[in-house]
């Protein structure tokens, strides 16, 4: 019950933020504008549309995850609202999980809006019925969930500015993980702490109509879930020891 109350409270808090609507509006605008990009022929145009819109959605969800998660704990600590919350019969872990779920609800709603917009525009402009778009956006949502868990972990230790900087670094390392492993032998062990964020990126194969086996989605889901759980557990461990 406490987790549910905190997640709904967090979600309602997010709904009051103008940034949330601005980012959704921006994504919506971009997705609508993409079909009007100059192109050589209709096939390329449709591929470009899917590639760009899925790529933008994924990036947008990552930005949104960072923006919404960064200040969740620090703001409550700074405004001392955390005293009111933690003086109630709840565990610190419930605060982290509740807040994380509140962010996930917001990300999920954004992902649903984005996938519906892409799906409908794809149908209206190119007369193509591609339910795989939903899978593409779902993986983007999973990537954002992992990123959000990482942000929660860092925000238990660092200031919001450092959290954002480290998250950007994490995002780039996550996307270049395979290349970094190949380039630097020492990175092999460190890489265990970073998920391969490229695994969540299916915009290119989906745009080119490559069929993706269901097992891939299942495995990627488990992969994302494991990393999110790992980061959240570490965040809980640190937050449990933190002086307020």
């Amino acid at each position: 019950m406490a987790i549910k109350a905190i997640s709904l409270y967090t979600f309602q808090e997010i709904l009051r933020r103008r940034t949330f609507y601005f980012l959704i509006f921006l994504l919506f605008l971009l997705v609508i504008l993409i079909p009007n990009l100059p192109s050589f022929n209709i096939g390329v145009k449709q591929q470009l549309f899917l590639d760009f819109s899925l790529g933008f959605t994924s990036l947008f969800l990552a930005i949104l995850a960072t923006a919404l998660s960064t200040n969740q704990l620090p703001a409550d600590i700074e405004r001392k609202i955390i005293y009111q919350i933690l003086s109630k019969p709840i565990k610190r872990s419930e605060v982290i999980i509740g807040k994380y779920l509140g962010v996930l609800i917001s990300l999920f709603i954004s992902a649903v809006i984005a996938s519906l917009a892409i799906f409908l525009l794809n149908f209206v402009h190119f007369n193509r019925w591609q339910p795989a778009i939903f899978w593409g956006v779902t993986l983007g949502f999973l990537e954002a969930s992992v990123l959000s868990a990482f942000v929660f972990l860092i925000s238990t230790l660092a200031t919001p500015t450092i959290t954002v900087l480290l998250t950007i670094t994490f995002y780039f390392i996550g996307h270049a993980r395979e290349q970094l492993v190949e380039l630097f032998a020492w990175f092999k062990f460190l890489a265990l702490l970073f998920p391969s964020l490229e695994s969540f990126n299916l915009s290119d194969p989906l745009a080119h109509g490559v069929s993706i086996p269901f097992s891939y989605y299942g495995l990627t889901f488990v992969y994302g879930l494991l990393f999110s759980t790992f980061y959240l557990l570490a965040a809980i461990l640190i937050f449990n020891q933190r002086e307020l």
Partner: peptide, 24 residues
């Protein structure tokens, strides 16, 4: 607490409702 801090966008009933849920 010495200076009670609240989420200022909520009203008194919403505030008590949220904390009441934390009390189960």
């Amino acid at each position: 607490p010495e200076q009670p801090y609240f989420n200022l966008s909520l009203n008194a009933l919403q505030t008590l409702n949220f904390y009441g849920q934390l009390f189960r």
